[in-house]
Amino acid sequence: MGSRRLAAAAIAAVAIFGAVPTVAQKAAPTPQQSEALAAYERALGDFKSILTERRRQIEAKEPLPNLPGQALYLARVAVISSYKDLTDVMPSRIGRPNKFEIPPAYFDAEIEPLVEEYGRLFDLMEAPPANAQSSPTPFEDVVDLAVAIARAKGLAPEHAEAAGRISLGLFFAETNGKQNVRNARSNTYMGSFQTGPSEDRNGRRKWEKIKGDVAAIDPGLSARDDKEEARARGTDQRFNHWTNVRNGLMNAHSDLFREIPGIVKTLPDTIDQMKLFQLIQIVPTPTRSALKSGDLLNYRVSSPRIMGYLRNNSIFAFGRADRAKTSASYREIFAAMWLFNRKFEKAMAKFAEIRTR
């Protein structure tokens, strides 16, 4: 009897209201959403494919192509970029936070294992050469050298400490804190601070000019430097951790250390300070011009070449909206450097650990 009454009620409801849905129907995706989803799935498939291929080649000990990391890097960029395009048109696809601290609108946490494999492959492809000269204290070396150089440049202890902290951030930004690594995306830039041969030589020449000042300030550090110079004699100094850090700092950053008192006033946030010095690595000329302008954060760059360098370093590289930008202020550039945040946070934690010992 009960079932007949329910059936009769259902028939009556249909007669009055029309068909009664039992489950809420999902709206069909728009053509734009379907296109974005297909693009993401293609990019994800390509990423999986190149990861599998590189793993197979490495395990089979096959010769790798020139710049074996470039295809991996571009495939990862395409995955993040196409996912941002997808979430722009389908916000419901934005998921949970991920262990890499990438904004969820740019990254599906379900593919974390693929990015972990990406990191493992780069570790293998960028392993130091057999004759690399490592240090038992790689992080302390970076801080000690930066502080000594800053003091030789006339900085007060407080600002010399800032130079040490910032330089440790550069070490993490360049190599994730790994010493003497090669570069799977470049045949030019190598070592703990990822310098080219000419940059390394230039840094060495600059070091010779202030070496006496450093010795007067810190005789112990000067003695260590003499030992490392002797150890690295006849080799590529980029694969001695100490000399590469020293030469890298002298080449690109030591002159800017004098500006640290003003920089910390303009950029009180420590991570922003690290971002500024990292931009000296990536786009030195406009960054120095921005500093000289008196209005750092509002200084704009619009050169296609400079915007290309930024994109090649994962800044304005992800999603159509970012890629379409033809100019940016330094305030916008700092905000777009979110992929560096996790590295700089690690550097800050390591610096605090060193100084607490």
Rank of each mutant, 00 (worst) to 15 (best):
E161A: 15
D46E: 14
G319P: 07
F344M: 04
P261V: 02
E353G: 10
V264F: 13
E62F: 03
T137H: 15
T30K: 05
F193S: 09
S49A: 15
N247R: 06
K84R: 15
T266S: 08
T270A: 12
I102S: 00
M125I: 13
V214A: 04
P91C: 04
R182L: 14
A163N: 01
L267V: 05
A328H: 03
K26D: 08
M125V: 09
M348R: 11
N341G: 05
A216L: 05
S167D: 01
A75P: 01
Y118K: 00
D272I: 07
A36Y: 10
K61E: 15
E117F: 05
P91R: 08
L339W: 04
E228Q: 10
N313P: 04
A317E: 10
I217M: 10
I11D: 12
V301K: 03
K48M: 02
A13H: 03
Y40M: 01
R165W: 08
E117T: 13
L121V: 08
V77H: 05
Y189L: 12
K346Q: 13
A39S: 12
T175M: 07
P21M: 10
G220I: 11
L114M: 14
R5V: 09
R204N: 07
Y106D: 01
W207K: 06
D255T: 08
F344V: 08
L279T: 09
R288H: 15
K153D: 07
E101C: 02
I58L: 13
N187G: 12
K209V: 01
M1Y: 11
A317H: 03
S92E: 13
T175G: 03
A152G: 15
Q25F: 06
K211S: 14
L37P: 01
M307Q: 04
A38F: 06
S92A: 14
K211C: 11
P103C: 02
P304W: 10
H253W: 04
V77I: 05
I11H: 14
V143F: 05
N240H: 10
I271N: 05
A27Y: 04
N313H: 15
S293V: 14
V214S: 00
T235M: 07
T235Y: 14
L67P: 03
S92H: 07
I315L: 03
S82M: 08
A324N: 11
I94N: 06
F239V: 11
G196A: 12
R76F: 06
P21C: 01
Q273K: 02
M250K: 00
E229P: 00
W207E: 05
E59I: 07
G196N: 06
M90I: 03
T52C: 14
K265D: 11
E126M: 12
I50T: 08
Q194M: 13
N98F: 00
D255P: 01
E208S: 09
I210T: 02
L72F: 11
A132I: 10
A162M: 10
I149R: 12
W207C: 00
Y189H: 13
T188A: 13
T195H: 11
E229C: 01
Q70D: 07
E140T: 08
A148L: 06
V14W: 03
I80L: 15
A130I: 13
E229I: 06
S198G: 04
V147W: 02
K350N: 09
A78V: 04
